[in-house]
């Protein structure tokens, strides 16, 4: 399992691995928003938490189809299914590798990009915390979507359509934490909900992902 994580991280940072792709996309989306809605500071302050969360979510979505499709194409997935690694473990490690290469950089970059959107001071720790708690759920849900669409040619769009509705609860509570934090309100309720969603998906979805993967490998 550790070998798989190491291999996936090594592949991500080598040429063509797509590391930084999500981060660059996030950066561009957040930079483009003030161009689109105009430079009024109060407006930007009001929409900053939502835009940052939405940007992070879309950036996460961008690299989902790489999670399993590449291993499917070169036959590694078949070989892994016949190896001693349980498929539940494989999909968990894949989701973890995706989070480390995509979600974690987004969490670290978000406070910097918050400046561009004039996020109020008290909002920074809450934004970072909400992303740190919420992005693992995005990776796990995305791995489930990738398992559903593995083997489909150009399944990327279908993957987005399947996964985006599943992202709704995470987005609602994540953005709410950041919004309440920025407005100086108590963000504990949405924060606990967000943490609960993340824990639930991490606990349950690997089994679902492994089951659909077995079905797709037949």
């Amino acid at each position: 399992m550790i070998a798989l994580l190491r291999r996936d991280l090594a592949l991500a940072v080598r040429a063509g691995g797509g590391f930084g792709l999500g981060l660059a996309f996030f950066l561009i989306v957040v930079v483009l928003v003030p161009f689109g809605v105009g430079p009024e500071t109060p407006l930007l302050t009001a929409i900053a938490p939502g835009v940052l969360w939405l940007g992070a979510l879309l950036a996460c979505l961008l690299s989902l189809d790489r999670i399993l499709a590449l291993d499917w194409e070169d036959g590694s997935l078949d070989l892994m299914a016949t190896s001693p690694l349980p498929l539940e473990g494989v999909v968990t490690i894949k989701a973890l590798a995706h989070w480390v290469t995509t979600g974690l950089p987004l969490v670290l970059a978000a406070p910097v990009l918050g400046v561009l959107l004039n996020l109020p001071g008290p909002g920074y720790p809450w934004l970072t915390l909400s992303l740190a708690l919420g992005t693992p759920a995005l990776s796990v849900l995305g791995t489930f979507g990738a398992a559903l669409t593995v083997g489909l040619k150009r399944g990327g769009l279908l993957l987005s359509l399947l996964v985006l509705p599943l992202y709704v609860p995470t987005l609602i509570f994540g953005a709410e934490v950041a919004r309440r934090g920025a407005a100086g309100l108590d963000p504990m309720t949405p924060l606990l909900m967000l943490a609960g969603i993340t824990c639930g998906t991490i606990a349950l979805l690997p089994f679902a992902s492994a089951a659909v993967l077995r079905m797709n490998l037949r």
């Binding site: 070998a3 291999r7 592949l11 080598r14 040429a15 590694s76 016949t82």
Partner: peptide, 27 residues
């Protein structure tokens, strides 16, 4: 079972040693 299909399950960006070592540690 050790299965070998039409596709070799190799990662083109990893070296020969890295590819083999990965499968060795998986097994």
């Amino acid at each position: 079972v050790a299965y070998a299909a039409h596709a070799d399950g190799l990662k083109s960006m990893l070296t020969v040693t890295e590819n083999l070592s990965f499968w060795a540690s998986v097994f």
